[in-house]
Simulated assay, not measured.
Amino acid sequence: MTILQRLIEQAKHPNGLIGSIMLRIMNVAHRGMTSWLIESGAIKNGDIVLDIGCGGGKTIQALSRINHHGKIYGIDFSEQAIRNATKVNKKDVASGKVIVKQASVSNIPYPDAYFDKIIACQTHYFWQDFAKDVKEVFRVLKKNGQFIIISELYKINYHREDYKTNKEIRQLFDHVGFQFVNIQEHKRNGWLYIMGTK
């Protein structure tokens, strides 16, 4: 396995010391995209929010700061990510405002129509069965709730073989049942923002 392949594997499933370092790097690297999410105004005070692929936990921390009366949940496939995210959000985890759990997007451990907002920042291109996983997200989203994906375009093009174009994404979201789909590109930074409203 090459060094690049090892790094990609650690990005997919952070593990051990290298994984912990990778999670810290991702926390810094994703800061701009998290700010773009917050500036969009999509997250409202009082929302129940799920962060899929919560990684090192800094996005959860940023969302908690603007969502004083809401609750933030995070799931990640990586046990190391859950440890790091718990540590970063220690105070909010202790108070019950933040709940992080090891879980997969393919089997979200929450009931139907539970969340107001669901976000996936720099993770969806790793999902094994994107169409099936979007249906699972739809299941746990409340009516009129919103599912937001933010990602770097070049990573989508590198990691995904399907659902790479805005047209494909829009068709999938329409097929799953989203009433409205908004897709924006941040040209300067090469970022993609997808928001589906149930």
Score class of each variant (00 low, 15 high):
residue 38 I to D: 00
residue 153 L to E: 15
residue 94 A to N: 10
residue 136 E to R: 08
residue 144 N to L: 13
residue 117 K to F: 14
residue 115 F to Q: 01
residue 116 D to L: 07
residue 25 I to W: 11
residue 48 I to H: 08
residue 69 H to F: 13
residue 40 S to E: 01
residue 79 E to Q: 09
residue 150 I to C: 15
residue 32 G to I: 10
residue 153 L to M: 12
residue 87 K to C: 06
residue 53 G to W: 14
residue 40 S to D: 08
residue 116 D to M: 07
residue 50 L to Y: 02
residue 128 Q to I: 06
residue 150 I to R: 12
residue 143 K to N: 15
residue 34 T to F: 04
residue 46 G to D: 00
residue 111 P to Q: 12
residue 152 E to H: 06
residue 67 N to I: 02
residue 137 V to R: 02
residue 66 I to H: 00
residue 72 I to E: 02
residue 47 D to E: 03
residue 55 G to R: 00
residue 73 Y to L: 01
residue 78 S to K: 04
residue 144 N to C: 10
residue 82 I to K: 15
residue 31 R to L: 10
residue 99 I to M: 08
residue 155 K to Y: 11
residue 137 V to W: 01
residue 57 G to M: 01
residue 49 V to Y: 00
residue 52 I to H: 07
residue 121 C to N: 13
residue 108 I to G: 04
residue 118 I to H: 02
residue 152 E to M: 07
residue 43 I to W: 00
residue 22 M to Y: 12
residue 68 H to D: 06
residue 118 I to W: 00
residue 115 F to C: 02
residue 140 V to L: 11
residue 135 K to F: 06
residue 63 L to M: 13
residue 111 P to I: 05
residue 39 E to F: 07
residue 131 A to M: 04
residue 110 Y to E: 02
residue 75 I to G: 04
residue 141 L to G: 09
residue 90 K to Y: 13
residue 50 L to A: 01
residue 51 D to L: 11
residue 33 M to G: 13
residue 84 N to F: 06
residue 142 K to V: 12
residue 106 S to L: 07
residue 87 K to P: 05
residue 55 G to M: 03
residue 34 T to L: 02
residue 22 M to F: 11
residue 24 R to W: 14
residue 128 Q to S: 07
residue 86 T to L: 08
residue 26 M to Y: 09
residue 96 G to P: 08
residue 153 L to R: 12
residue 129 D to V: 06
residue 27 N to F: 05
